[in-house]
Design a protein around this nucleic acid. Structure first.
Length: 159
DNA sequence: GCCAACGTTGGC
DNA sequence: GCCAACGTTGGC
C-alpha cells in the first residue's frame, strides 16, 4: 500500500466536496508526470489531500483510491477547459487514454490541518517531490516522508 | 495580484 | 530536435 499526495483548489473542489460526493472522480490532471503517477495508483492506496491556491495551503485530510486509471471524461468534453482532441483520438483508435482519473473515496480529515510551510521546512522532506518539483499536482510519498508528515500531524496516516 | 518555476508549443 | 515565446501553477 502506497501513499500519495494530491493538490486541489478548495474553491473548485475541497475536501468537504469530496466528503459529500465520495467516491469522486479525481479528474482534470493535465500533466504527464502527474498522469504517470495516477497510472501507478492502486486500490487501497492512501491519498493525502492538499488544499492549494488558498489562504493557508495545507494537507487537510485523507482519501483512499477506490478505482484506478479511468479515462478522464472531461478530456472528451469540447466545452470543458480540459478538453483534449488527442485524448479523443486515442480512444477512437483503441489506444490507452491519454488522460486518466482515479476515483477517490473520502476517509477523514486531519485532526488539525498541516500547513505546507511546516512540511516543507522539515529536513526529511528536503528531497521530496513536494519540495523539489514545483507545480506537480500528484506525487508519491516514500516511507520517510510519510513518517515525517505523520509526526508533524501528530496522528497516523494509515487507513 | 505578483512572479518564479517550469511545462508546452511551434517555427526553424 | 533545438529553443524562444508563451501559458499555467501555486506559494507568497
Amino acid at each position: 500500500m502506497r501513499h500519495w499526495l494530491v493538490k486541489t483548489e478548495p474553491d473548485t473542489f475541497s475536501l468537504e466536496d469530496l466528503r459529500r460526493e465520495s467516491p469522486a472522480l479525481w479528474d482534470g490532471v493535465r500533466n504527464y508526470q502527474a498522469r504517470n503517477f495516477l497510472r501507478e495508483m492502486r486500490c487501497g492506496d492512501v491519498v493525502l489531500i492538499q488544499h492549494s491556491s488558498c489562504k493557508v495551503p495545507a494537507i487537510v485530510g485523507l482519501a483512499v483510491v477506490s478505482e484506478i486509471a479511468l479515462p478522464d471524461p472531461t478530456a472528451s468534453q469540447p466545452d470543458h477547459a480540459g478538453f483534449d482532441p488527442r485524448h479523443v483520438a486515442d480512444l477512437e483508435a483503441g489506444k490507452p487514454p491519454r488522460w486518466l482519473a482515479p476515483r477517490l473515496a473520502y476517509l477523514r480529515p486531519l485532526s488539525t490541518t498541516l500547513p505546507l510551510s511546516r512540511i516543507k521546512a522539515a529536513p526529511p522532506m528536503a528531497e521530496s517531490h513536494l519540495v523539489r518539483r514545483a507545480r506537480l499536482s500528484v506525487m508519491p510519498l516514500n516511507e520517510n516522508e510519510i513518517a515525517c508528515i505523520a509526526s508533524l500531524a501528530g496522528e497516523s496516516l494509515m487507513p
